[in-house]
Design a protein around this nucleic acid. Structure first.
Length: 276
DNA sequence: ATGCCTAATGCAATTAGA
């Protein structure tokens, strides 16, 4: 089973790119972020025409998250993180699909730092960690996938020294990411590629993609029962080069069937996350 | 320190992204 996350940066402006990628990459389940569309403007008809069921939480102009599936019903379990009834941003949607509980998230950017936006990012992160701990404690197959707006280590930034004061690379943001990981989550991409500089985002500015001046900020985190099934994890880098592309590229993982031993299918390396 | 680019809103210029 192939599960992907993709920050589309405007689902209507990006629709041809999204549909082309879905048809080509054929993911079974997809988490989308930054729909930038109100609830009623989600293009569910062309997505259904490609064979995908969908749930989404839209918002006018900003944010917005969705989960797509072509492998069985999407049983929604919540939209919005607990812990702040005044949080009006559409940044979290969660559902059980094909035996996996999936939390699709768009963590706040947090710039400029310091300021109220950075404070909101850290508070949101705390709420995510609290909720993630409860999900992990169930012992069930759980995945958190989306745009975390955090580069965990120097290896995840093309030029780390330039990003030290940025909300995406601030020590507080990285510390929060590792507090989350240390609950017992596996960072799928980094676990299968422990030493590679891998990016999922390239700025529209300054020809960043051509220079490979990128960041790794889109992550797929797996609970232990899913981590055992991890056989592959990749970024569809080429999609970033398509005309009218998002500034993010899709990221995906391949999971062995629940009944199949991943160890037999493809032994995976275990790595301990390096602290920032 | 700022613009560089792009989308949404709504029709000019602002906000937000990362």
């Amino acid at each position: 089973m192939k599960i992907a996350t993709y920050n589309v940066n405007g689902i209507n402006g990006r629709l041809p790119v999204l549909l082309r990628w879905l048809a080509q990459s054929q993911p079974d389940i997809v988490c989308l972020q930054e729909l930038k569309a109100p609830q009623e403007k989600f293009p569910d008809k062309p997505i259904r025409d490609l064979g995908y069921d969908a749930i989404w939480q839209g918002q006018k102009s900003w944010n917005g998250v969705a989960i797509l599936s072509r492998v069985g019903q999407i049983h929604e379990t919540r939209r919005g993180l607990p812990g702040d009834p005044d949080d009006s941003h559409s940044r979290y949607i969660e559902a059980a699909v094909n035996g996996i509980l999936i939390g699709g998230l768009y963590l706040p950017n947090g710039n400029p730092k310091p300021g109220p936006k950075f404070d909101y990012k850290l508070r949101w992160f705390d709420r995510l960690i609290a909720h993630a701990g409860e999900l992990l404690a169930t012992g069930q197959p759980v995945m958190l996938a989306g745009d975390f707006n955090v580069m965990p280590t120097d290896l995840d930034v093309y030029k780390p020294e330039r990003w030290l004061d940025d909300a995406l690379f601030a020590p507080e943001a990285r510390a929060a990411y590792f507090r989350l990981l240390e609950q017992g989550w596996t960072d799928a991409l980094r676990t299968l590629h422990p030493d590679e500089a891998i990016y999922t985002f390239w700025d529209y500015f300054r020809n960043a993609f051509a220079r490979n001046a990128g960041l790794r900020i889109d992550h797929l985190l797996l609970s232990p029962p899913l981590a055992e099934r991890l056989v592959d994890a990749q970024v569809d880098v080429a999609v970033r080069g398509w005309e009218k592309s998002s500034d993010h590229a899709p990221v995906w993982i391949e999971l062995a069937d629940a009944t199949t031993s991943a160890r037999r299918a493809a032994p995976r390396r275990r790595v301990t996350p390096v602290r920032a």
